[in-house]
Design a protein around this nucleic acid. Sequence first.
RNA 1: GGCGUUAUGGUGUAACUGGUUAACACGCUGCCCUCUCAAGGCAGAGAGUCCGGGUUCGAGCCCCGGUAACGCUACCA
Length: 507
Amino acid sequence: MTDIKTDTPKTEAPIRVRIAPSPTGDPHVGTAYIGLLNFLYARQRGGKFVLRIEDTDRTRFVSTSEQEIFNSLRWLGILWDEGPDVGGPYGPYRQSERTEIYRQHVDLLLANGTAYRAFETPEELEDLRLRQIAAKLPPRYDGSHRELPQAKIDQYLAEGRPYVVRMKVPPHTGDSTSSTTFRDELRGNITFEHNNVDDQVLLKSDGFPTYHLANVVDDHLMGITDVIRAEEWISSTPKHILLYKAFGWDLPRFWHMPLLRNIDKSKISKRKNPVSLIYYRQAGFLPSAMINFLGLMGGGMPTNEAASTGKSSEADIFSLDDMIARFRLEDIRLGGPVFDLTKLKWLNGEYIRRSTPEAFYEALRTTILSDSYLKQIAALVQTRVETLGEFGNLTHFFFADDVMPTEEIFVPKKRTREETLTFAAEQLTTLEATDWTHEALEPALKKLGEEKQWSVKENFMLLRAIITGSTMSPPLLESMEIFGKPRTLARIRTFLDTQKKQNNTKK
RNA sequence: GGCGUUAUGGUGUAACUGGUUAACACGCUGCCCUCUCAAGGCAGAGAGUCCGGGUUCGAGCCCCGGUAACGCUACCA
């Protein structure tokens, strides 16, 4: 093993990297992927890895999300040196606690003429957008408040009209540049003409910053040296460069990583692939396997010597420590890798087979057979069994992954297969948007049933069939609650996918 | 539509500064082992490197032109 630190130029500032997830839902595999890459980069260079929470979107905020992000990353062993929960010298690490900082920085931009107030209402902007689309023009802010006379601004402010602050993208008086070129460490120079860069909103009318502003201000203030993020940010990087320039700050290095993909190559999404880290934990994937699998995405691990000497399959198997020792971020492949569950499951199986019997049993007992899980399930069936031996009869679906009802079971007497599948898809949509307590689930499902003219019995029986594979089960909603949202939704999606495929083969 | 990025078997990756029949893993097929199923062992099928030109003795690697996929195009991140 080589000493990585000797490779690091000694003149460099200490490496500081970060991930900045938004607490808007379940922790995402994409967050884990980018987190892993940042973590490795920092560890290999004796740098610091920062976790920052980007909670500036109040409309999408989910209160439990932040804690779940912490739990999931820790589960994987992706540990941060600074963050909201562990503190650090550059805090606070939650953007909602930094609003005063952003306000001050916006004032700086307002004062030096690189930003301006815009007083249009959201309705006016929507109207503009629609007209532009109708005229086959690229939808873009038309800049009408770019050069508002001071008198007008004062008047609007006095009237108390709400406003946003927008970035004044050059060219304008004081800066005549018409394009921005930046270096992506993986791809080389990328150029954007400014007439393709919108006057991005920096400060929303609710006083919160947008991603673009908060991100640049925080990265600078937190001393971030390398921005390692997903490819979807390439398009907005010129805005960020312009902001660094407007503040007069040095640029970090930018590394844009390929996007994880669904099987059909689109950006990975929950509709087509489980993306919740909670799902993977609850479904019984081992953190070592998940980390290993993520390390396979995009390459980056040099071919193992074991591959040429010993068993060749060893080449694909490595630990987090192996990655710290040998992973090369600069070798990441740029094509978007498909997040292929088949290979993940094979890897997971490898890790299970390699466990000691004790470790395997321990893994079962802390996940799929944990005391808390069993205790909740037991409470559900106590009145429904006559011998303890019947426990498995009623609860098999809690422990199985291949539940699939036959058509006779899931299609109600007076319904067709088609309308049943359509309704099941609507149930899925409803469940996705509902808090995961049986108290919340019941009215949500009943409301859907009323709207679509499905009786409560038909409604719940269909769902019961999908979740349990049977027409007989412990109380459905309580069962779903214990089984967990990510796995329940995944089961419904698997059901719908399978039935859809059967449709296609029938025709 | 505009802008940007990407492109090696079905999937993930490999192929030194261009150099023999494009390699490994997953998956798939068959066989062996075996009370079953996995695991394991063995043997296969599957790409000529998105397409078209060019440079070169020689191109997956270099040049030019296309195409397709993906991303962005919000007072979301």
